[in-house]
Design a protein around this nucleic acid. Structure first.
Length: 909
RNA sequence: GGGCCGGUAGCUCAGGCUGGGAGAGCGUCCGGUUGGCAUCCGGGAGGUCGGGGGUUCAAGUCCCCCCCGGUCCA
């Protein structure tokens, strides 16, 4: 099977030589008879550093432009990039390759691709190598993957392996001017994202410039299963190609020269010596800090080449590693936030937070005063012509970065206090144990270097050994949550039994009575019609309810759902028979409320984006009969003024009675016209989209039912805003009838309060405040009087003290709630003696004070008394508290027990 | 979605392991001291100990549930 992919006509007819690499053992093709190894890492060193082997180019943008032009000329349709946040997928947060844009819907053949074949340059983010970024000269967290894709699905052949290889060859030679004999194609197997296929890596002078994958397997339980779809999945690293053409000493210097130079000057650093840069660059392909031993070896080689010792080399490189990392991270942060990620403690927001915090630590390490906002601000400017969409919303992006930066500073200062506490605790030991370090990082976000810094100034050692392995352990512990597959009410086979249902609810959204033919009844309760006006649950909108009238009577439609394109009506009562013509009656009151709620959701989103900023994206929504719960991305607390503004703006749109247009159009056209903000509920996996547009206000891909004019909503009332987690807020609001009812209810409640207070409506709040103040005053007064009463009572009891075996005793039953206070106060009066008080509820307090303490333990005395009277209790040496069953005879019991204890003591003395 | 840490006076926190009388510092108010600035001394006000349930004679403290904040990870 592999031969089919190895011995491609392109190679055989073009005079290519097939060889096997003696180092890695893989098969490769070359035009150079001298070539022995495949040319990949680690088989060959980088041979392009300081050289210009291809066509001269002016900018990264030019490389991208030429790529797209070449494929466009060769029959490919250019497609706009997708956002870096993979909203249409639930298995990943970020787009890591261009093929992510089309998984799983297009690659599974369920949805037509937006064009076929197509060409794209897709910003992609990979955080798995984040520890290497800045240090190896070649790793990035964010890169643009240029790609041409061909989807050979449903028997349609576009092109396959041979053409793909030829395109790659022509691109590199014709467009980028790379000499043909420099190129090798290395054969391998690739797998990822549940798919697999043979692939060729395109290598030039040790650098992999592209990977060409021929995807035609599924991986099932570790085995490869061939699938019908054959997908050409290519990936050309834009930054790498530019780096190669420039011959720079690292990918960072090629891509981010401006930022790097600026940071270097700000940090007051001399440029790195050229020989060191070159020595490092040549070997950087082998550098990987996940393999520390190998990395150490590379460093030793570099050191001996430039004649410095290893420590000197690391010392020189360290600040530049931070600068390079910052250059990379800040651009990725710009992409993420610009595409709608708000830093948070979960999900993709957490990944943004991770990068922001790492970046801030690098800034700190460089001793720079400038904020991360300044770095991101520079990036926005540097990439202004490549990504004008970010430039447009720069204020929002920078505000989010600034807010996150501020929050991390707070976390650090909070953390530094905790560290101070810890240090004072471990100061005597002279060392902070490793587990404290892990706890500090894990629970308080305090990085270990901060602890070390503070500790070393106090001369306390910090045990950092095993910190990372302990962290890794924790990682293991937090298990991965299983992704639940979408649950259908019926298996998909049922859908293929029937033709697609005609959707009358799209043809006329106010059709509530219709005629249709029964084409099936399944499982004794699900009715399938040839056409229906019943809206099936979907897109956050509840299903319709109603009735189906037929020859045998009528049945109640309790739930409606969709499997594929077929609508099923769950019915109760006598069912219609196959082939019969029936009449459907939709509960119109219910549907109208749902429609108002749905359209008002779009109205409110438009208002949120205008008042809070365009970083607001839908993060989940539920429209019920009673209210709408709408979650959205946002970072700062929402002020009362903003809330009012949002509500007012939304209602203005209602009053303006704007048209709500619904149209089906091609995905490409929709994206061109409205941009990616269409996909608020996630990307709809279809070639043809239904776009719901509130004229001049909001446009979203949406399958729900909507009003025709915003005026039909009537009124929108916001109930409240909540922060549901970092970076996500929730608004609850009502529209139409529920809104009116809500306003009525609030109104009548308020009026009831006013009546109770006997105050005019306008003064209700002031009066409540006043009443509360008065209540407080009265409570204080009561407390004061209570206290006086208690003191008087204590005085009275103290006067009744008797003497038992030389010890003063006050004992008896008093009707008193604050029994303990009374006992303490009485004891203070008699000064030296014993007080035993009980109240009718059975609570008992024994207080011993003054010289009596030498002879009597309150606990012993108390225990003996309660034993006598059927109870229990405990306390401290001078105070006993407990409960007894009968309070009769407390005084007698107390006298008797005290007498015995005192006598015993005397006897001892 | 999971793990961990936290919520006690206006603020910063102690107390919690081992249940029994709610505390400190700062701030605030009053009085005195001082020529004034972060002077010193004395006194006072200020608390549903996040909420609910449970165990117990007794819960800030132990157990369960929930809410809120923080943090690490998927």
């Amino acid at each position: 099977m592999q031969e089919e992919f190895i011995d491609l006509p392109f190679f055989k007819e073009g005079g290519w030589i097939k060889r096997k690499c003696p180092v890695c053992g893989r098969v490769f093709w070359t035009l150079n008879p001298e070539r022995k190894v495949c040319g990949d890492q680690p088989c060959e060193e980088y041979g392009f550093i300081g050289k210009r082997l291809g066509r001269g180019v002016e900018s990264l943008g030019e490389v991208r432009r030429r790529f797209i032009e070449f494929f466009e000329k060769n029959g490919h349709t250019p497609i706009r990039r997708y956002p870096v946040v993979a909203r249409w997928r639930d298995d990943v947060y970020l787009v890591g390759a261009s093929i992510y844009d089309f998984q799983p819907w297009v690659t599974e053949g369920l949805v037509e691709p937006p064009a076929n074949p197509l060409v794209i340059s897709q910003p992609s983010i990979r955080l798995t190598d984040v520890d290497n970024v800045g240090r190896t000269g070649r790793h990035l967290t964010g890169f643009e993957m240029m790609a041409h894709h061909a989807f050979n699905v449903r028997g349609q052949r576009v092109y396959w392996a041979n053409e793909t290889v030829e395109y790659a060859y022509r691109l590199f030679t014709e467009v980028y001017g790379i000499p043909p004999e420099e190129i090798t194609f290395v054969f391998d197997m690739w797998s990822g994202g549940g798919n697999a296929g043979e692939d060729y890596e395109v290598l030039v002078r040790g650098l992999e410039l592209a990977t060409l994958v021929f995807m035609h397997y599924k991986t099932v339980e570790g085995r490869l299963v061939p699938i019908e779809n054959k997908i050409v999945d290519t990936g050309y690293g834009l930054e790498r190609i530019y780096w190669f053409l420039q011959g720079s000493t690292s990918v960072y210097e090629a891509v981010f020269p401006g930022i790097i130079e600026w940071l270097r000057r700000e940090a007051g650093l001399e440029p790195l010596p050229a020989d060191l840069r070159v020595a490092l660059a040549k070997r950087s392909g082998r550098l990987d800090f996940k393999k520390p031993l190998e990395a150490m070896k590379v460093f030793e080689e570099i050191s001996s080449e430039v004649g410095m010792d290893v420590d000197e080399v690391s010392r020189l490189l360290r600040p530049f590693e931070s600068i390079y990392a910052l250059a990379d991270h800040s651009r990725t942060i710009m992409w993420m936030i610009g595409d709608g990620v708000v830093p948070s403690n979960t999900g993709s927001g957490y990944l943004a937070r991770l990068l922001i915090r790492r970046s801030m630590r690098h800034l700190r390490r460089l001793g720079l005063e400038i904020g991360l906002v300044d770095v991101v601000s520079r990036q926005l400017e540097e990439w202004r012509s490549d990504f004008p969409e970010y430039w447009e919303i720069r204020d929002e992006i920078l505000d989010i970065v600034a807010y996150e930066e501020e929050k991390y500073r707070e976390t650090l200062s909070r953390g530094s206090k905790i560290v101070d506490n810890l240090l004072s605790r471990y100061k005597r030991r002279g060392e902070i144990p490793g587990e404290e370090l892990v706890k500090l990082y894990e629970s308080h976000g305090v990085p270990p270097d901060l602890v070390e810094e503070k500790a070393s100034s106090l001369g306390v050692r910090v045990d950092t050994t095993g910190f990372y392995s302990k962290l890794a352990e924790l990682k293991e512990k937090s298990g991965r949550e299983a992704i639940k597959p979408e649950e259908w009410k019926l298996p998909p086979e049922y859908a293929s039994r029937f033709p697609e249902t005609r959707k009358l609810y799209y043809e006329n959204e106010k059709l509530f009575r219709f005629k249709a033919r029964v084409i099936g009844v399944v499982e004794g309760k699900y009715v399938v019609l040839d056409a229906t006006a019943f809206y099936p649950e979907g897109g956050g909108q509840l299903s319709d309810k109603g009735l189906i009238r037929h020859g045998g009577g009528e049945c109640e439609v309790s739930y409606v759902f969709r499997v594929g394109g077929v609508v099923f009506h769950e019915c109760r009562g006598p069912l219609p028979s196959q082939g019969e013509e029936v009449e459907g009656l939709v509960d119109s009151e219910r549907r109208l409320t749902l429609m108002r709620h749905h359209t008002s959701t779009h109205v409110v989103l438009g208002a949120l984006r205008r008042v809070l900023g365009r970083h607001v994206w839908q993060a989940g929504a539920q429209k019920t009969l009673d209210y709408v719960r709408f979650d959205f991305t946002h970072h700062r607390p929402i002020t009362e003024e903003q809330a009012r503004k949002i509500e007012e703006l939304a209602n203005r749109v209602v009053m303006e009675n704007r048209r709500v247009k619904k149209a089906f159009m091609s995905r490409t056209e929709a994206e061109k016209r409205y941009g990616f903000s269409l996909y608020q509920g996630g990307v709809v996996p279809e070639k043809i989209l239904r776009v719901v547009e509130i004229e001049g206000w909001d446009a979203e891909a949406c399958g729900g039912t909507h009003c025709d004019y915003t005026g039909e909503i009537g009124v929108i009332k916001i109930v409240g805003f909540d922060k549901i987690q970092d970076g996500v807020f929730r608004v609850i609001f009502k529209a139409g009838v529920p809104a009116v009812r809500y306003i009525q209810e609030i109104d009548s409640r308020l009026k009831r309060v006013a009546r109770l207070l006997d105050a005019p409506l306008e003064e209700v709040d002031l009066r409540v405040a006043k009443e509360l103040e008065e209540k407080k005053r009265l409570q204080d007064e009561l407390k004061r009087l209570e206290n006086i009463r208690l003191l008087g009572e204590a005085e009275r009891l103290a006067a009744k003290a008797v003497e038992v075996s030389g010890v003063k005793l006050v004992a008896g039953v008093v009707d008193e709630e604050k029994l303990r206070d009374l006992a303490l106060e009485t004891a203070r009066r008699i000064g030296d003696g014993v007080v035993v008080l009980a109240n009718p509820k059975g609570r008992i307090v024994v207080k011993v004070s003054g010289g009596a303490l030498k002879k009597i333990d309150a606990r012993e005395l108390g225990r003996r008394i309660t034993e006598k009277l059927g109870g229990r209790g405990g306390g401290v040496s001078d105070l006993f508290q407990g409960k007894i069953a009968s309070v009769e005879g407390v005084a007698e019991a107390a006298g008797e027990v005290l007498g015995r204890l005192a006598e015993k003591d005397k006897g001892r003395a």
